[in-house]
Each structure stands twice: as structure tokens, then as C-alpha cells.
């Protein structure tokens, strides 16, 4: 009788394992704060894309963007591109922080930041510039 009871227990406990594993499978990225950051970055991208392509703006090794060659931007636009870069970096930092917070682990911010750093570069289009581990600019 006891062993049957025990077996029932074991089965019941084992049935829970996939549920727990599933719960841990995804990060929460559907909060209002994350969505609005995403939308702001998406609309800014239409203005930044040509500067990535020209090489004026590059992806830094720390998951941000930088004006790597201002000479490639017409003088009249230079200030505007500078503000775009600053705004983009502000949103990126906020995004990394918000994802960590949305998942109840603010201490994950740095690791999320470095995960993004790798993925931005990985997904960058050919011809865009990024910083390698040593900090040198490389054309993809």
C-alpha cells in the first residue's frame, strides 16, 4: 500500500518537471516599457540605417552605437546624427535595464547588455561597421 502511494507521489512530482522547465524557457519582453522603447528604436532606425551603411555610425563592442567617422556625414547633418546616436544609446541602455527588471532580476542587466552586444553585431548587415573585442573598427 505504501509503495503504491509512493509511486503515485513520484509520478505526480515528475509530471511537474516539464511545467517548471517550460516556465523558465522564455524571458519576459512584452511589457509596456519594453514595447515603447522598441517602437522608438524602430522608428529611429529608419534615420540611422543609412549612416550604418555609410560607415559613419558603427556598432560598439559594448552593445551601443557610436559616431565612428563624422567626416562621412554632411556638415549640416552632423549634429542631428550626434543626437540620434545619443538617443539610441539612451534607449538601448534603458531597454537592457527594463528587460532585467521585467524578469525580476535587475542584476541581470549587465549580462543582457553583453548578450545584445553580440547579437547586434551578428545581425548587422554586410558593409556595416562594428568594434571587435580589441576595440578596433571592422567592416562586416
Amino acid at each position: 500500500m505504501h509503495s503504491q502511494n509512493l509511486r503515485l507521489w513520484v509520478v505526480a512530482m515528475l509530471l511537474w518537471l516539464p511545467v517548471l522547465a517550460f516556465a523558465a524557457a522564455d524571458l519576459e519582453i512584452n511589457t509596456p516599457a519594453i514595447s515603447s522603447l522598441k517602437m522608438a528604436m524602430q522608428s529611429r532606425h529608419s534615420q540611422l540605417a543609412s549612416h550604418y551603411a555609410s560607415g559613419a555610425v558603427g556598432l560598439t563592442r559594448d552593445g551601443l552605437v557610436a559616431l565612428r567617422d563624422a567626416a562621412l556625414v554632411p556638415l549640416a547633418q552632423r549634429q542631428a546624427v550626434g543626437s540620434l546616436v545619443a538617443a539610441e544609446n539612451q534607449d538601448r541602455k534603458a531597454l537592457y535595464r527594463e528587460i532585467a527588471r521585467a524578469n525580476g532580476h535587475p542584476e541581470w542587466e549587465e549580462e543582457i547588455h553583453s548578450t545584445f552586444a553580440q547579437r547586434w553585431v551578428q545581425k548587422a548587415a554586410p558593409g556595416w561597421w562594428y568594434q571587435n573585442h580589441g576595440g578596433a573598427w571592422v567592416k562586416k
Binding site: L27, K38, T115
Partner: peptide, 20 residues
């Protein structure tokens, strides 16, 4: 830190931001 989940989340967001 769930590295694989973070990578997946990053890819999803980057795809949306860069409309890939």
C-alpha cells in the same frame, strides 16, 4: 542567468527594431 533565453529575446527584439 538564462543565456539561451536572453539570446532568443535579443534576437526577437533586434529583428523587430531592424525589421529583419
Amino acid at each position: 542567468f538564462p543565456a539561451a533565453a536572453a539570446e532568443k529575446a535579443a534576437d526577437k527584439i533586434i529583428d523587430e527594431v531592424w525589421q529583419l
